[in-house]
Design a protein around this nucleic acid. Structure first.
Lengths: 109, 109
DNA sequence: ATCTGGTGCAACCGGTTGGTTGCACCATGT
DNA sequence: ACATGGTGCAACCAACCGGTTGCACCAGAT
């Protein structure tokens, strides 16, 4: 149970929710926004958005900073790399296996 | 609404669970296995594994086929590409935004 | 015909999750 | 000083999730 694996799970489960994905998309274009701003464009309450931003924060995909009386959230896409890395690993293993199989077939023909 | 977005969510939430990730890893090395086999190597019951395999199947990450009286599961990693694609999009948008910002700063110095 | 091992189905359980509402708390502009 | 708009905190809810157990079912081997 690597802490790394924990992080990976947090990232994937953060990305699992459509609202959260929309929020990330929004923050990718807009660099920073408050929960209230984001909630205005979403069909759910501000509190719901806050919770979503919290889980995005736990996954390290977003960072919050106070500016005056408002709290602005910004995208920090680094953990996406970890996630992509894991998927690549699985894919690579799969390809290696395929290559081995192809090799055997080649040898046995 | 998009069936595509639905699929994306299914993939990410499939990858969100550590047991499911382990199963995928296993199937990447082993090409095919039954639920009972997989359950032997995991700390949970066969039924739990079956459920996991079902959600992996819904995400399109795994395919099942009957061989005699047993059901073998195999990895079908194609949907990983979709997931990686989405992440890449967010990352790319982010980069474009950074580039624009850099441009403005450059122009205004 | 019957024992056996792998599957499938269904009920059940505790914990998490996405969502809500209500209200108290601050920082700011007038 | 005070009204205001953005936050934070907490309780509550229905639905879902990961997991279990018990049992019926079905294909093969004896």
């Amino acid at each position: 149970m690597n802490m790394n694996d924990r992080r990976l799970g947090a990232v994937f489960s953060a990305l699992a929710d459509p609202t959260r994905r929309r929020l990330l998309g929004r923050l990718a274009e807009q660099q920073s926004a408050t929960a209230t701003e984001l909630a205005a464009a979403e069909p759910v309450s501000r509190q719901a958005i806050v919770k979503h931003l919290q889980s995005l924060d736990e996954a390290g995909l977003v960072a919050s900073s106070r500016a005056g009386r408002e709290v602005r959230y910004a995208l920090t896409p680094a953990p996406l790399e970890d996630a992509a890395g894991w998927m690549e690993t699985v894919g690579a293993e799969w390809d290696r296996r395929l290559a081995r199989l192809r090799g055997k077939l080649e040898a046995g023909k």
